[in-house]
């Protein structure tokens, strides 16, 4: 059934209405003054334990990578580049062969996750971390080694309280502390 158009008028308020509307606005303000409803995350003291589905930092599992270049080809910003390195050839022991692996430039990455989704062997994966800080731009260009390391949230590393938000029909979002056990 297609949508219907419904004509409406903005409600009118008279002089008496204006007085009562003033009062109800003030009462509502006072209500929230006494019972505030806050979502604020006290960030460096608390951090959100993100979902596993969160599209956070991207990490390479080198063992699974077959060097197919799909990730570099699909990357919309050109953040993912293939590099060639010499690795021992399993077929000819003692010989070396050229293998291709992706590396990422976090200056350019927009975390669309196309590379993760297009990887035919699940060699790339998202880590539910979004608050890694780099001290200079050069650090953001990952090499093969650092691309394989899972980044750790600096807040979590410094012992911040893990929290997560759960939906609530009365208060919208409620911040709940995450216990050690249920983190993963």
């Amino acid at each position: 059934m297609p949508a219907k158009f419904v004509h409406k008028k903005t409600p009118k308020i008279g002089v008496l209405g204006a007085i009562s509307r003033n009062a109800s606005a003030l009462v509502l303000g006072l209500k929230y003054f006494f019972e505030p409803n806050r979502f604020t995350l006290m960030y460096p003291r608390e951090y959100i334990v993100l979902d596993k589905r969160y599209r956070g930092f991207i990490v390479l599992n080198k063992n699974k990578c077959i060097g197919c270049e799909s990730c570099a080809r699909v990357c919309p910003t050109g953040a993912m580049k293939m590099i060639k390195i010499e690795v021992p050839d399993p077929k000819n022991p003692g010989k070396k062969k050229i293998a291709k692996y992706p590396t990422i430039n976090h200056q350019r990455c927009v975390y669309c996750g196309f590379c993760v989704d297009i990887c035919p062997t699940e060699a790339l994966y998202h880590v539910p971390v979004h608050d890694v800080v780099y001290f200079n731009l050069a650090d953001m260009i990952q090499d093969l080694e650092s691309f394989q390391k899972e980044p750790v949230s600096p807040a979590a590393a410094e012992g911040a309280i893990p929290v997560k938000y759960v939906f609530d029909p009365e208060r919208g979002l409620v911040k709940v502390r995450v216990k050690e056990g249920e983190k993963k």
Binding site: A3, K4, V6, H7
Partner: peptide
């Protein structure tokens, strides 16, 4: 669903 239209 409806699509509201206002006149003013």
């Amino acid at each position: 669903f409806e699509i509201p239209v206002f006149e003013e």
